[in-house]
């Protein structure tokens, strides 16, 4: 019995052990370098507490989250309806396909110079980069989801005499929804990754800016603290998305 409990405790804390080990090795290596070149976990923690106390962490996190939400939701609002149309109407899909195929492999980072040229400095270019990063995953999965709808659903709709509007709203949209959800999930990841890049681009606030600013002052500890916050927030958003996805799946009657 005791052994079982120890075993279970060990398994439950297993993910923690790798973090402890990682921190230990990191701290050990950091001993051999000057702190402004390679700070240890303790220095990073101090920097984190510092920005948390003086409020910089919270303002920048809030601004980043708002930009992220803005760019992401804008992308979803455009890409989902567009994807539904392009997926539903084969002619439109074929028409737009070459354009999408050429635009898609262009990294949002390559858009930086144009984004700055067009939108100047501030919120707009960052939001635009996030928007681009989220747009194509959502668009492509939505098109794929609509095209992958089982033929029998459309036959049933036609057989019962559903008009095009009902077929679209009550059959195609719900049938494609689980597939669209996958795209929304993927896009959260790519958009969050590009958030920092977007904010390093001349923005005067946000987590990305906090990192650039720290670099300018050679605050390596603060750079790492910023990276940690970005990682943790990304994880939280991704997890939240998964919870949402499951809830939607249950509502949609997809089970498991």
């Amino acid at each position: 019995m005791r052994r079982g409990l120890v075993h279970r405790l060990g398994m439950a804390t297993l993910p923690v052990w790798i973090l402890v080990l990682f921190g230990g090795v990191w701290g050990l290596i950091a001993q051999f370098y000057p702190p402004d070149q390679f700070p240890g976990p303790a220095a990073m923690a101090r920097a984190l507490i510092e920005v948390a106390m003086d409020g910089r962490l919270w303002t920048n996190t809030w601004i980043s989250l708002v930009r992220f939400a803005g760019g992401y939701l804008l992308a979803v609002a455009v890409a989902v309806p567009l994807g539904l149309l392009l997926g539903r109407f084969g002619v439109l899909g074929r028409l737009f396909d070459p354009l999408i195929q050429v635009m898609r492999p262009i990294s949002p980072i390559a858009w930086f110079p144009l984004a700055v040229l067009w939108f100047g400095i501030g919120n707009a270019p960052a939001i635009y980069i996030i928007y681009l990063a989220a747009f194509f995953p959502v668009l492509l999965t939505t098109i794929g989801a609509v095209r992958g709808i089982p033929e029998v659903y459309l036959k049933v709709a036609a057989n019962f005499g559903a008009d095009p509007r009902m077929t679209f709203l009550r059959v195609i949209v719900p049938a494609a929804f689980p597939g669209i959800m996958v795209g929304l999930h993927i896009a959260v990841g790519t958009a969050w990754i590009h958030l920092v890049a977007g904010e390093m681009l001349g923005a005067q606030s946000g987590l990305g800016y906090m990192i650039v600013d720290a670099r300018n002052f050679l605050r390596t500890d603060l750079i790492m603290a910023g990276m940690l916050v970005i990682g943790l927030l990304g994880l939280a958003i991704y997890r939240g998305m998964r919870v949402l996805e499951r809830a939607v799946g249950r509502y949609w009657g997809l089970g498991q």
């Binding site: 029998v152 659903y153 049933v156 005499g161 559903a162 059959v171």
Partner: peptide
């Protein structure tokens, strides 16, 4: 009305909702 081998039920609708579909369409 055609009945298919793979049923053609809408997974996002309940049993009742599926039966309602044809009536709603009409």
């Amino acid at each position: 009305i055609m009945i298919f081998q793979d049923y053609g039920l809408f997974p996002w609708r309940t049993v009742f909702g599926n039966v309602l579909f044809g009536l709603e369409a009409r």
